[in-house]
Amino acid sequence: MKKIIFLLTILSVFSACAQKNNSTKIIQTQEKTKDRMDTSKLNETVKKAFDAWQNGNAEVFTSYFTTDAKLYDDGSPRDFKKFVKDACGHEKFTTIDKIENEGKEIFGQFHTESWGDFKTYFKFSLNSEGKFDKLEIGQAN
């Protein structure tokens, strides 16, 4: 009986160490992702829309767009409202690799439940009232 108790004690110590190591790895991964998501160079309105997208908040995301906003996916027109409904909360950037055009274009790694991970871009077009009237998305090189 003492041997069984001793073995159980040893196993619980090893298990606790493994859990601690897994927790440390998860925290380190989250920190690396956070470091790779620097949004400080984004246009102020783009940043707000981007944050809403990343948080899966379709209502807030669409509030930055005109009611007749256009969406182009690799140059082809798509239904903007359907895209947001289907993708927001299920797809998001995992890194930001580059920001261009005065903070209105985002390039980075993107994760989707159906297509996996790939490089993509979101290019936001602001109208004179400060709303987005066009979003171009697509696979980046």
Rank of each mutant, 00 (worst) to 15 (best):
K3P: 02
K3M: 05
I5S: 01
I5R: 07
L8M: 14
I10Q: 05
V13M: 04
F14E: 07
F14Q: 04
F14W: 10
S15A: 12
S15W: 06
A16G: 13
C17A: 10
A18N: 05
N21E: 11
N22S: 10
S23K: 13
T24P: 01
K25D: 09
K25E: 13
I27F: 07
I27M: 06
Q28P: 02
T29D: 15
T33I: 10
K34E: 12
K34V: 11
D35S: 13
D35L: 12
R36S: 12
R36Q: 11
M37K: 13
M37R: 11
M37S: 09
M37F: 08
K41M: 12
L42S: 07
N43K: 11
T45L: 05
V46H: 00
A49S: 14
F50D: 04
Q54V: 00
G56T: 04
A58G: 15
A58W: 05
A58I: 15
S63H: 12
Y64S: 04
Y64L: 03
Y64G: 01
F65R: 00
T66M: 06
Y72G: 03
D73R: 03
G75V: 01
G75P: 00
P77H: 07
K82L: 12
F83T: 03
F83P: 01
V84K: 00
K85C: 02
K85P: 03
D86K: 03
A87Y: 09
A87F: 06
C88I: 14
C88H: 04
H90C: 05
E91C: 08
F93P: 01
F93K: 02
F93G: 01
F93H: 07
T95G: 01
D97I: 03
D97Y: 04
K98N: 15
I99E: 05
N101H: 11
G103Q: 02
K104T: 15
K104G: 05
E105L: 02
I106A: 02
I106M: 08
I106P: 00
F107M: 09
G108Y: 02
Q109C: 01
F110V: 00
S114K: 12
S114I: 02
W115F: 12
D117Y: 08
F118K: 12
K119N: 14
S125N: 11
S125P: 05
L126Q: 15
S128H: 14
S128L: 10
E129S: 10
E129K: 13
K131C: 07
D133C: 03
K134N: 06
L135C: 01
I137V: 08
G138C: 06
G138F: 07
Q139K: 15
A140H: 09
N141S: 11
N141P: 08
